[in-house]
Nucleic acid binder design. Sequence first.
DNA 1: TTTCTTATTGATATATTATATCAATAAGAA
DNA 2: TTCTTATTGATATAATATATCAATAAGAAA
Lengths: 133, 133
Amino acid sequence: MARRNTIQRSLVLEAVNKLHCHATADEVYEEIIKEHPTISKATVYRNLNLLSDMGEIRRLEIPGSADHFDHITRNHCHVKCKICGRVFDVDMDFVAGLETGIRDTYGFDFTGYDIIFHGVCPECKKQQDSLQG
Amino acid sequence: MARRNTIQRSLVLEAVNKLHCHATADEVYEEIIKEHPTISKATVYRNLNLLSDMGEIRRLEIPGSADHFDHITRNHCHVKCKICGRVFDVDMDFVAGLETGIRDTYGFDFTGYDIIFHGVCPECKKQQDSLQG
DNA sequence: TTTCTTATTGATATATTATATCAATAAGAA
DNA sequence: TTCTTATTGATATAATATATCAATAAGAAA
């Protein structure tokens, strides 16, 4: 049952930390095979799950997209551009304690929440504006 | 280009309204084929998309689950039970105007947000308690 | 060091959700 | 009734992720 340290696991952690902008499993895989072309994608998925469970990295579930993985930093939430699909950080100081407001209201045990904002990122907005005149 | 009324489209709308508890495409399909076994699943998906675009129903994207579809009611957000995976309604009066707080902070055009709370529903909590003594 | 147990890997199959393709059908205008 | 084409049904395909399983290797034990 004891966890074993493997090269593959440290490569996955290293890649997530290096990419650090909420990389997808596939992006992590692509990053690793640059230097270590023999790693299996299944191994990348497995270790992303393991590292998430261990609390070494954070899984970010994006509706309609693949899961993203982030190194652990201060609390923030995310906004997904509906044009290009990229995900950006948003400070979340102002939503702190959001779940405490409903904790007592329902029979539910709340363990957390995901907030995904939708919008159009500055870059895509610029592109749209230039297209429409 | 003009939209045509089809039996299939009205069946999909009818099923969503009947199930009304954030049914998945598959659940909508299963509901319809009880009476109309010849409808294609592709048609169900297509009409769920169309009806969402038309504003007749609401698409609810759940991280890690299939999209759910809801008839339009007053604003509410959702909480997903991490045990059974079911999705429940939550009043969202207290989070109204959430995105206005960040609208000016970034170069982003915010169009909305999804909040998915996580937790354990009363039923699963009860089951857990009885297992653990 | 060598042996041994089994966690982990790589490769691949499978599952799930959803869209793309395309000939056949049918809604609704002409 | 005829005609155009939106829509359908069937199926292929895509994207994301897990399951399976024999082979490998981490790390404890001898």
